[in-house]
């Protein structure tokens, strides 16, 4: 269980409890009546049934009462919703960018992070978008969720109370890495946050880290290309040590012989630069045999320069 749920989110919890209470009364009432009738009017006890065609008064009663109940529930849900959609003026804006399968958070001063770091006690507004497909940003502890939609900005806000570390999930299905697209919300004491926020950011710790982030030490040994491969999520599917993950390993990729399927036909090729570029931009053109054609195209996601850097890096992997 997630601990320390801030109490403010009673807008959700209370409505939930309210509906549960109504539902329980109805459910227990219906079930008890049903069981009582079945026992009391069993064929043994009551061999002769009485034909009762209906009762207009009753029909009216059990139309009106549920109507009142559901309107009440609607109102409660709506009230809570209004609150959830009205962002306080002093909320700290953070830009969120989702991509297969990592999150990236950008602050007003340009600072970027792969975990969402926020100061306790100050409302936060997330402005969310996606670089590729639909994702959903969900922080159970704060009862908030909103989809990340490519080509569109959505938003949500919440008030983190207690310092602590909370889960952040992706709730809109987005491919193989969907269940790994999780990170943390770090709610920090005001001072600690300020200290983190003001620090000049070393360029290389710039962007999104996922669950599989390597340690800082390892990262130092990689070049720019290595960092890109990490940050852009390649290493979620490709290993560096020769094991096959979702996709073929990067180890010794340049110059190796590979059997690919091109429009339904097998052919053997030798991995060269042209092929590598095509693998990145049109991964479904040549699909390595034995692997599913699910590699996301990097077209429009990696710049030309980045593609070059990554390919140089791939070639260096012996």
């Amino acid at each position: 269980m997630v601990t320390g749920w801030p109490t403010l989110w009673n807008t959700v919890d209370n409505v939930f409890l309210f509906i549960i209470a109504i539902s329980l009364v109805l459910l227990l009432g219906i079930t008890a009546t049903m069981i009582y009738f079945v026992v009391r009017y069993s064929r043994k006890r009551n061999p002769h049934a009485e034909n009762i065609e209906g009762n207009t008064m009753l029909e009216i009663v059990w139309t009106i009462i549920p109507t009142i109940l559901v309107l009440a529930i609607f109102y409660a849900g709506w009230k809570g919703f209004l609150y959830m959609r009205t962002v306080p003026d002093d909320a700290m804006p953070v830009k969120v960018s989702a991509r297969m399968w990592s999150w990236s958070f950008e602050y007003e001063n340009g600072r970027k992070s792969g975990t969402l770091k926020v100061p306790a006690g100050r409302p936060v507004k997330l402005i969310i978008t996606s670089e590729d497909v639909l994702h959903g940003l969900f922080i159970p502890a704060f009862r908030v969720k909103e989809d990340a939609v490519p080509g569109m900005e959505t938003y949500l806000w919440f008030l983190p109370h207690e310092p602590g570390s909370y889960d952040l999930f992706c709730t809109e299905y987005c491919g193989v890495g969907h269940s790994a697209m999780i990170t943390k919300v770090e709610v920090m004491p005001e001072k600690a946050f300020a200290a983190w926020y003001e620090v000049k950011q070393p360029q290389k710790r710039s962007e999104g880290t996922s669950k599989h982030a390597p340690t800082a030490q390892k990262e130092k040994n990689y070049g720019v290309g290595a960092r890109l491969a990490q940050v852009k999520g390649c290493l979620l599917c490709h290993s560096l040590d020769g094991t096959a993950k979702v996709g073929p390993t990067f180890k010794g990729i340049a110059g190796r012989k590979t059997v690919v399927v091109t429009s339904g036909k097998d052919r053997e090729i030798i991995v060269d630069e042209v092929y590598l570029v095509r693998s990145l931009l049109e991964p479904q053109a040549d699909v390595v045999k034995g692997f599913p054609p699910i590699m996301p195209s990097q077209k429009g996601i990696l710049s030309d320069a980045e593609i070059k850097t990554i390919i140089e890096y791939l070639k260096s992997l012996k």
Binding site: T11, V12, V15, F16, I19, I20, I22, S23, V70, I73, F74, A76, G77, W78, K79, G80, F81, Y83, M84, G136, F138, P140, R143, V144, K145, E146, T171, E172
Partner: peptide, 16 residues
């Protein structure tokens, strides 16, 4: 279903 339909609650439980 009524719980799903209540706006503020749905925000929390959608997609779960």
């Amino acid at each position: 279903g009524l719980i799903n339909g209540a706006l503020s609650v749905n925000i929390h439980i959608h997609g779960t």
